[in-house]
Simulated assay, not measured.
Amino acid sequence: MTRVLLVEDEPQLVRALRINLKTRGYEVDAAPDGRTALELAAKRHPDVVLLDLGLPDMEGVEVIRGLRGWLTVPIIVLSARHASAEKVQALDAGADDYVTKPFGMDELLARLRAAVRRAQPAEEAAVVETEAFTVDLAAKKVTRNGRDVRLTPTEWHILEVLVRNPGRLIAQQRLLHEVWGPSYEKETNYLRVYLAQLRRKLEPDPAHPRHLITEPAMGYRFEP
């Protein structure tokens, strides 16, 4: 049974979410503030986290950073904050998705299901196929039209991170951190250069990519 950690200080919303989630077979632990959320996460090991940013004792972004120090499960932000900068900050801190309030329950549940599916451990396909190219993760090899595509180590590393997270937005800072290290987290121009190179090698129409997608000012996403 999927365990959800709900971090929210609005009692009515907590009640509504708890009822809807339990009706659909989820187990729910609720925390009214950030400190309780971090304690519950350590004790209960949730499979997914639903997190409000406006908590009474600390900013939700701080909770995300605290969880991301050791927890890899999906974190979906629920917030009334609509500003792009707020969304970018939450995603950069390690959130996987951002849902603005008020939201439809059906949409939230769909996003929750999608996040849990993407987080399923590495029963992942060793070979990922798209209409344009094939990625063999085990052999670290890419083919297009039956021919090997030569990638530099950096190009491969970027592609591997994206391909292992299909459909999931990978924030610029996370991608820079994973590929180059923490001291390069502001060098977003690196990503523009390397993604352009990857598209030239892999996309049928690099100017209109179908598989290596840019989310402006936020990050990148691989669509199979």
Rank of each mutant, 00 (worst) to 15 (best):
residue 3 R to Y: 01
residue 12 Q to C: 03
residue 13 L to S: 11
residue 18 R to L: 02
residue 19 I to S: 12
residue 27 E to W: 09
residue 28 V to E: 11
residue 31 A to C: 10
residue 39 E to D: 14
residue 41 A to F: 05
residue 44 R to P: 00
residue 44 R to N: 11
residue 55 L to F: 09
residue 57 D to M: 11
residue 59 E to C: 06
residue 62 E to Q: 15
residue 62 E to S: 14
residue 64 I to Y: 03
residue 67 L to C: 07
residue 68 R to I: 14
residue 68 R to N: 12
residue 68 R to Q: 12
residue 69 G to P: 03
residue 70 W to A: 14
residue 70 W to E: 13
residue 71 L to D: 15
residue 72 T to P: 02
residue 72 T to F: 04
residue 81 R to C: 07
residue 87 K to V: 14
residue 88 V to Y: 00
residue 89 Q to S: 14
residue 91 L to N: 08
residue 92 D to C: 01
residue 94 G to H: 09
residue 95 A to S: 13
residue 99 V to S: 10
residue 100 T to E: 01
residue 101 K to N: 01
residue 104 G to R: 15
residue 105 M to P: 00
residue 105 M to W: 10
residue 109 L to K: 06
residue 110 A to Y: 03
residue 110 A to K: 11
residue 111 R to A: 05
residue 112 L to C: 07
residue 114 A to F: 07
residue 120 Q to F: 04
residue 120 Q to Y: 03
residue 122 A to S: 12
residue 129 E to I: 00
residue 131 E to L: 14
residue 138 A to M: 03
residue 138 A to Y: 00
residue 139 A to G: 09
residue 141 K to M: 07
residue 142 V to K: 01
residue 143 T to G: 07
residue 147 R to N: 11
residue 149 V to N: 05
residue 154 T to Y: 05
residue 158 I to Q: 00
residue 162 L to S: 08
residue 162 L to N: 08
residue 165 N to M: 03
residue 166 P to C: 07
residue 166 P to E: 09
residue 166 P to Y: 07
residue 167 G to Q: 10
residue 167 G to R: 14
residue 168 R to S: 06
residue 170 I to C: 02
residue 172 Q to M: 13
residue 176 L to R: 02
residue 176 L to D: 11
residue 176 L to I: 09
residue 176 L to Q: 07
residue 180 W to R: 15
residue 181 G to C: 10
residue 182 P to L: 04
residue 186 K to D: 15
residue 188 T to Y: 10
residue 192 R to Y: 05
residue 192 R to S: 11
residue 193 V to M: 10
residue 194 Y to T: 06
residue 212 L to Y: 08
residue 214 T to F: 00
residue 214 T to R: 01
residue 215 E to F: 00
residue 216 P to S: 06
residue 216 P to E: 08
residue 218 M to Y: 10
residue 220 Y to N: 05
residue 222 F to V: 02
residue 223 E to S: 14
